[in-house]
């Protein structure tokens, strides 16, 4: 009996994990989160945007760090086209101190982040999106329909060895009204830290 209960529990857990969060085609919710500029930001304030590049990322994760410069470059490349990057730190700083709001501010300053870096302090946004790790990208169109979910490119470790810029390709396809392929990719990342 105990075995059965465990099995059922495992199955339910699996199902919940598999179906939690947005899939391509879903309409994503807007949010209001505090940024490293101490102001509250939401997608709706970005009036000129043709789409939104929401990236769950953080300070401490080595994979997130590896992508910092590439995210800055993506903002330079795509914000003028109407696709701004909105980075969100989803981690609980009581678990990883490096991801505290103060440290976010510090990091943004040190690296000269040219994009919004917001704090999901109540940890209410990332579960809705279904983000599980950092970095984890959700590309939305103007109507906030999810168009692409996954990785920034195909090589976290070595930017010079990248063969496919998944996110950049997806933004260009979205902008051109073409099919986004692939629309879902996977990469290794740091699990989001929650209690």
């Amino acid at each position: 009996m105990k075995q059965l209960v465990l099995t059922v529990f495992a199955a339910v857990t699996t199902v919940l994990t598999a179906f939690g969060g947005y899939k391509v085609g879903d309409v994503a919710d807007d949010f209001s989160l505090k940024g490293t500029d101490d102001k509250i930001h939401s997608l709706s304030e970005l009036k000129d945007a043709k789409g939104y590049v929401v990236i769950f990322t953080c300070n401490h994760c080595p994979y997130a760090k590896l992508y910092e410069d590439r995210i800055i470059a993506l903002q330079e490349e795509f914000e003028p086209m109407g696709y701004p990057i909105i980075a969100i730190n989803p981690n609980d700083p009581s678990i990883v101190e490096e991801d505290s709001f103060e440290n976010m501010k510090k990091r943004a300053k040190e690296k000269g982040f040219n994009f919004l870096y917001l704090f999901d302090e109540k940890q209410s946004v990332y579960p809705k999106y279904g983000a599980t790790k950092t970095p984890h990208v959700f590309l939305l169109n103007k109507e906030r329909v999810v168009k692409y979910i996954g990785a920034i490119d195909d090589n976290a470790r070595d930017a010079s060895a990248v063969q496919e810029r998944y996110l950049a390709n997806a933004i260009r396809a979205l902008d051109a009204g073409k099919e986004i392929k692939p629309s879902v990719t996977k990469a290794i990342g740091c699990s989001i830290k929650a209690k």
Binding site: K133, H136, A156, A161, Y166, K186, C190
Partner: peptide
Amino acid sequence: DDHTNDWIDKVDTSWSGAIP
């Protein structure tokens, strides 16, 4: 193997890529 997108699903299709 750096090409994670090619093999994460081969471990398990439900795996998001987060560890552990």
